[in-house]
């Protein structure tokens, strides 16, 4: 996994609460067996008109000023619903590295870290202030420093954010979870020798 240290980028807003993973990547695209190729279908039903090709001019992310955005600013409970990791895959492939919201659904939040993306939780009123700033400032950019846990806006506002120390470390170093766990192979073996489970075999 690529390490995540700092990130500076254009901010796009998605002013909706409870955006679910069925919207992020609709089910008809989950039949792919690869990890790639999902970005083109991100927010498919919102992003495109009936023909499935023409960008829907009403959809926020299609605004010219948000093209090339790498930071997504949104509302509460982002990523609720299904566990599909295709959702963060699609978001990342579309170009977003950072998502900022007052809250996230658990599985989605976890899936982001597994893909080198940073979901940032900020209080709802702070998120609202950021929305105001982005709405008023065409081309608004944020700079995120994971090491110092700070977010700086192009108007000079500085905000600090919380992130779990372990998750931060994994992101900063781009650590492979499986490799980390396998360092404890002896403990897994010891556990297995004491812990009896009836296996699935008949």
């Amino acid at each position: 996994m690529e390490p995540f240290k700092t990130h500076k980028g254009l901010v796009a807003t998605l002013d909706r609460q409870h955006v679910d993973t069925d919207q992020i990547i609709p089910k008809q695209f989950l039949k792919r067996v690869e990890r790639t190729g999902f970005g083109q279908f991100l927010f498919y039903d919102w992003r495109f008109l009936e023909d499935g090709k023409t960008p829907n001019p009403e959809f926020e992310l299609n605004q010219p000023r948000f093209q090339g955005a790498t930071i997504l600013l949104t509302r509460d409970n982002f990523g609720c619903g299904s566990s599909r990791e295709h959702a963060p895959w699609a978001i990342l492939e579309y170009g977003f590295k950072v998502i900022i919201a007052p809250s996230f659904a658990d599985i989605f939040f976890n899936n982001c870290f597994k893909n080198g993306m940073l979901p940032i939780v900020l209080p709802a009123h702070v998120v609202s202030e950021l929305f105001d700033e982005v709405n008023k400032t065409p081309g608004a950019e944020f700079t995120i420093n994971l090491e110092t846990q700070t977010l700086a806006t192009s108007l000079g506002k500085k905000i600090s954010f919380e992130v779990n120390a372990f998750r931060k470390d994994c992101l900063l170093k781009g650590l492979d979870d499986i490799g980390l766990t396998l360092q404890h192979e002896d403990k897994i073996k010891a556990f297995e020798s004491q812990h009896s489970i009836s296996p699935r075999a008949v």
């Binding site: 619903g81 566990s83 990791e85 599985i107 976890n110 597994k114 979870d177 499986i178 766990t181």
Partner: peptide, 29 residues
């Protein structure tokens, strides 16, 4: 790798949905 894994909790099991990276993690470890 399915959010409705909580169903199995009805039996007093700790059951939860995971993403595909975690599916790989469980397969391997």
């Amino acid at each position: 790798g399915d959010s409705h894994t909580s169903t199995h909790g009805a039996f007093g099991a700790l059951a939860f949905g995971i993403g595909t990276s975690e599916v790989e993690h469980v397969l391997a470890t």
